[in-house]
């Protein structure tokens, strides 16, 4: 396991990108060891009267993979979904607390959600490609954000190469994305998210519906992407968390079923030397 400090310096700016690349806000890049990309402070989410997750405070480090693990219903998904405002779609959902991205609290209702979602991409539990061609799936986001048609070929190729999918699909770019295998579809969805050049990619159990080989490919991809993106991955698979992540947050539920964060630290610490008994019980398989 590589620990994060190795690839901190100079990696935060996006790779040379076409005209599509938005200028990164000044001062966003980390100058020294683990800079925080998103600072979550006292995040609490209610669905109606039910409190799904309570008082989460967590600094997501830039250019590292942060895993969120914990038993079902502990609010893992809710936390990541609130970070790119997917919780806005749930009637009756209320989000309080702060998530600071480049000095701006992205949870405030007045924030431009379109811009937040462009900067914080998301990959979902089940692959959800659009019923369009492979090319059009990748091009969808860049087109939304005004990349001109003549630049698209280059963006699509660069993105698919970045997602290690190019060699598998280069001869069928204009065939339906739905003809790909589940694992390929999911990597296409990752590519689709990468194509808008976000700073953060959230992954909500990205391999839970994928076969073992496909899962392996996705994990390899995540390892590659860490140099360019900040990644947050929710997983109920502890081996996966230990394989792919640099830091891990362990969540569990209170008696009222509200999720909360128990412990957060370097993955190696969480799995080998947890400070909290609940964490130890969970990672050693005695619970959950």
């Amino acid at each position: 396991m590589t620990l994060a400090t190795q690839h901190d310096s100079g990696q935060s700016s996006l790779p040379a990108a076409g005209s599509a690349a938005p200028p990164r806000p000044p001062g966003a890049g980390p100058a020294s060891a683990p800079a925080t990309r998103i600072a979550i402070h006292n995040l609490t989410v209610h669905y109606g009267t039910f409190c799904a997750v309570r008082n989460v405070t967590l600094d997501i480090p830039a250019n590292q993979v942060t895993a969120i693990i914990g038993p079902s219903g502990c609010g893992k998904s809710t936390v990541v979904r609130s970070l790119n405002r997917m919780t806005d779609l749930v009637p009756g959902a209320r989000v309080s607390g702060e998530a600071i991205l480049d000095g701006e609290n992205i949870l405030r209702p007045e924030v431009d959600v379109v811009n937040v979602r462009r900067r914080i991409g998301m990959v979902f539990q089940r692959p959800n490609p659009f019923p369009k061609s492979i090319y059009d799936n990748v091009a969808y986001g860049p087109r939304l954000h005004g990349v001109r048609d003549r630049d698209l070929d280059e963006v699509v190729e660069r993105t698919l190469r970045g997602a290690a999918l190019w060699d598998e699909v280069k001869d069928k770019l204009h065939q339906s994305a739905l003809a790909l295998s589940g694992g390929q579809q999911q990597r296409l969805c990752i590519a689709r998210a990468m194509a808008v050049e976000p700073e953060v990619i959230l992954m909500d159990e990205p391999a839970s519906a994928i076969d073992p080989i496909g899962t392996l490919r996705i994990e390899e991809l995540i390892a590659d992407l860490r140099a360019t993106y900040t990644i947050v991955i929710v997983t109920h698979n502890m081996q996966q968390a230990s394989r792919v992540s640099d830091v891990t947050a362990f969540f569990t539920m209170d008696e009222d079923r509200a999720g909360y964060m128990v412990e957060f630290g370097p993955t190696i610490e969480i799995f080998t030397n947890p400070r909290n008994q609940l964490t130890e019980d969970y990672v050693s398989g005695r619970f959950g």
């Binding site: 979602r117 089940r126 959800n128 939304l144 808008v196």
Partner: peptide, 27 residues
Amino acid sequence: IPNSQREGALALGATHWEVVHQVLIPY
């Protein structure tokens, strides 16, 4: 139409209108 289609487009920064005419109507 499955919700995942809407989420997929919204997560890329699409507006409601873009989701409707680029994703839902073709689907």
